[in-house]
Amino acid sequence: MKRTVNILKTSVVLVLFIVASFSTVKAQELALVEKAAVIEFESQTIDYGKVAQNSDGERTFYFKNTGNAPLVLTNVKSSCGCTVPNYSKEPIMPGKEGEIAVKYDTKKLGAFTKTITVSSNAKEGKVTLKIKGEIVGSK
């Protein structure tokens, strides 16, 4: 009788050990599922084409957070003072969309190519956007 009780206790301990081991492995697997924001732009280049001098230089880059964590844009800066970006400082939740408005100063004639660097907590880190076009005088 005492031997049966000992075998039963040993079996219970062994079963509990196995269940605990599987639970630990499952928890570790779940921890490996990375929580990260992912920023996906509709387009990383905006081509203004030919634009009249002193005309509206505003354009917009659209993006979506396709990750599983909130996306926070930490800095958006242009390659020169002639391009001014504007963006929301609020987090973009997973599955939601956002935008970065860009205003290019259309006073100076000629072709232009400028970059906008977007820094965020996204998996990609920094993303470089580009605007290009040509400012033409009126005839």
Rank of each mutant, 00 (worst) to 15 (best):
R3Q: 12
R3H: 12
R3P: 02
V5T: 10
N6P: 08
I7F: 04
L8R: 06
K9D: 13
K9T: 13
T10G: 11
V12A: 11
V13Y: 15
V13G: 04
V13L: 15
L14K: 14
L14F: 10
L14M: 15
V15Q: 12
L16F: 10
I18V: 05
I18T: 03
V19F: 04
F22V: 03
S23Y: 13
T24C: 08
T24P: 00
K26L: 14
K26S: 08
A27K: 08
A27Y: 15
A27R: 10
Q28V: 10
E29T: 06
E29H: 10
L30E: 09
V33K: 08
K35Q: 05
K35F: 02
A37D: 03
A37R: 06
A37N: 03
A37L: 03
V38L: 10
E42Q: 13
S43Y: 08
S43C: 07
Q44R: 14
I46A: 01
I46T: 02
D47G: 08
D47K: 13
D47W: 11
Y48M: 02
Y48W: 06
G49L: 08
A52E: 10
N54Q: 11
N54W: 15
S55T: 11
S55V: 08
S55I: 12
D56I: 13
D56Y: 12
G57K: 06
E58W: 15
E58D: 15
T60P: 00
T60C: 00
T60L: 01
F63P: 05
F63M: 05
K64H: 06
N65G: 00
G67N: 03
G67S: 02
A69Q: 11
L71R: 02
L71N: 00
T74E: 13
N75V: 11
N75Y: 13
N75I: 13
K77H: 14
K77W: 15
K77N: 13
S78N: 00
S78V: 03
S78E: 03
S79I: 07
T83W: 13
T83D: 05
V84R: 13
P85I: 08
P85F: 05
P85S: 05
N86W: 08
Y87R: 00
S88T: 09
K89M: 14
K89A: 14
E90S: 11
E90M: 12
I92P: 01
M93H: 11
P94D: 00
P94N: 01
K96V: 04
E97T: 12
G98W: 08
V102A: 05
Y104N: 02
K107M: 14
K107L: 15
K107Y: 15
L109K: 10
G110A: 06
G110Q: 05
A111N: 14
A111V: 12
F112D: 02
T113P: 07
K114Y: 09
T115D: 06
V118P: 00
V118M: 05
S119M: 12
N121E: 00
A122G: 01
A122Y: 03
A122C: 01
E124W: 03
E124I: 07
E124D: 09
G125P: 01
K126T: 11
T128C: 01
T128Q: 05
L129I: 06
L129G: 04
I131A: 00
G133H: 02
I135P: 00
S138H: 01
K139V: 01
